[in-house]
Amino acid sequence: MRAPFSTALAIAFGLVVLLGYFIPAPCDPANPGLSCTFLGIRVVLLDWGATLAGVAMLVGIVNLALVHWRKVRASGKERDLLSAVFLLAFLITLAAGLWFTPADVRFQRAVLGIQTPVEISLMALLVVTLAYASLRLLQRRSGLMAVSFVISALVFLLLMSGLSGLFQQVPLLREPVNVINRLPLAGARGILLGIALGSLTAGLRILLGADRPYSG
């Protein structure tokens, strides 16, 4: 077995956190028992996890800055001057954040003043991209699934753009429209059940030590 120590640690911590879900909370501090012990251990472990995740984000950001620094310093095709723009923006934001602190309203306004328009522009680009992809879908993919997808998308776009309310005023159409409106919910539940079962088995692989996405 590779990395037995980290595997044992991962399994032990995973089991404690998992058991915490099945042991009823809150515990009674006046009469602390197994429930309080597990709840306490679970909270401590999750707090450690959250702290480590925060540190990991910091490490990731430093790594990101270093990757762009190397791209600026590289020669030939590897060189990317847009990375210099990234580094400049990163350093200015970092310096301003340290100077004014992230809680400062002026700092927040300045950051959001740049971030929000950029994200809205990307969102607009996404709308165009998705419209174009939908148009191309039947060219790229034939079959019942693709046709059903396009028809469903069109039907629900029309229904959600106000037609649904209009149809519900007609007594004869009210029930069929209600049934059609429930269809996406049923489909979504089916897909989510599949994802939940997949998540369960993926988690069990880790808990049983059969899958180890860490080297130790």
Partner: peptide, 17 residues
């Protein structure tokens, strides 16, 4: 590529191991 710091570190760790 990843959008989370922990995931970025785990991806490096996966590649290294």
């Amino acid at each position: 590529t990843s959008g989370d710091g922990t995931l970025a570190i785990l991806s490096q760790d996966t590649l290294r191991s």
